[in-house]
Design a binder for these strands. Structure first.
Lengths: 213, 213
DNA sequence: GTCTATACTGAGATAGAC
DNA sequence: GTCTATCTCAGTATAGAC
């Protein structure tokens, strides 16, 4: 990697975090990085591919650690299903502990989420991880139908994405600051999600006890 | 409201849903609506304020119905806390049943969420609703500390936002279509969220049963 | 192989005529 | 109220210098 590439990546990551992706022009990046406009397109092809490179160098180690934890827990279980709490920990601990120590990266992620770039990022960089955990969760929760499992994993991903990108930086409800304590957040998230994933299916109709409508 | 304003709003809502907010130029809107470019800025001020008007005319009735349901449940409870499931239903039923019947609006919301416009939209149009439900949930879940409650409501909002805007339109994991059955989705979401909200707090350290790190 | 200078297309916004 | 013409700035593409 040339010095020009490194300067572009570092400057872009900082400016995207500070101002957002859409609000940061390539001209602003090259001005602060001290490089030429066309250098971005020469090295990265486009603004979007530049973002991809940024995500990859941060998400890669996270996903490797997730799979390593999952491998370890599956080895320890020796063929039996890995408990839900351990699966959640393998999935959540690597990103949460990293982001708790790097508020700037949490803000960067929050910006990307807030600008709606997470879905496409997730598809590119996290889909294979989710697929692997979905299978493990299916073994841990055999009483759920495939549809119920898929829905609940969707709920889980929504809660996680929202949490990883936002509350670490700021609360969006009461305005009171949520302490950026990674360990506590991890415990709370695992408690909530395991409660939700294990909840009995509510297969009866809701309208039974209604007073009419 | 003039005919010009109505044509702009209807065309913009359709095009934003079909192509996304950022990808839809004002020039495209005025071409399909048969009005002049400057008319948008005259009537709405900017592209962003045009979006605000679109959100307001859809979110207004939803929020009114949420508060009406909450009022009814609180009256039925007669001073006692409203059960979590009923609070979740009051919060979730109005948007879910509407979006299940209007896939085009679900796609519009999904686009807005996917482009990261939901946080700013939520702050403007939904904050007072969340505050009211947060208080009611606090009464229903007295064993949670204020911080635990706030965190869990954040998890809930993440799961809900992700769900309302996405699975109604398409699955993002396995590729298998998730049936756009509003009643079933509502039941599953309430089951998951009530399980999560009621889950016992996990206040001990996670590392106890680790095999070392 | 790297990088610079410059031009191209299309976006949102605005001033002023009607 | 509405429209024409124009402004500024964005991302992108290319030609050519080192």
């Amino acid at each position: 990697m040339t010095e020009t590439q490194a300067k572009i990546l570092d400057t872009a990551e900082r400016l995207f975090g500070e101002q957002g992706y859409a609000a940061t022009s390539l001209r602003h990046i090259i001005a602060e990085a001290g490089v030429n406009l066309a250098a971005i397109h020469y090295h990265f092809g486009s603004k979007e591919e530049l973002l991809d490179q940024l995500i990859m160098r941060r998400a890669g180690p996270v996903n490797e650690e997730r799979l390593a934890l999952l491998d370890r827990f599956e080895a320890e279980a020796g063929g039996a299903p890995v408990p839900v709490e351990k699966l959640l920990r393998a999935f959540l601990e690597p990103p949460i502990l990293r982001l708790a120590k790097r508020p700037d990266l949490a803000k960067f992620m929050g910006r990307m989420y807030g600008e709606g770039l997470m879905p496409v990022i997730a598809e590119k960089h996290f889909h294979h991880i989710v697929t692997r955990f979905l299978a493990a969760l299916g073994r841990a929760l055999p009483r759920l139908t495939p549809l119920e499992l898929e829905l609940r994993v969707q709920f889980m991903l929504g809660a996680m994405a929202h949490t990883l990108c936002f509350p670490l930086a700021q609360s969006t409800i009461s305005g009171a600051a949520i302490p950026a304590d990674g360990d506590q957040l991890l415990r709370e998230l695992i408690a909530f999600l395991s409660g939700g994933l294990r909840a009995p299916a509510m297969r009866q109709d809701l309208t039974e006890e209604k007073s009419g409508k």
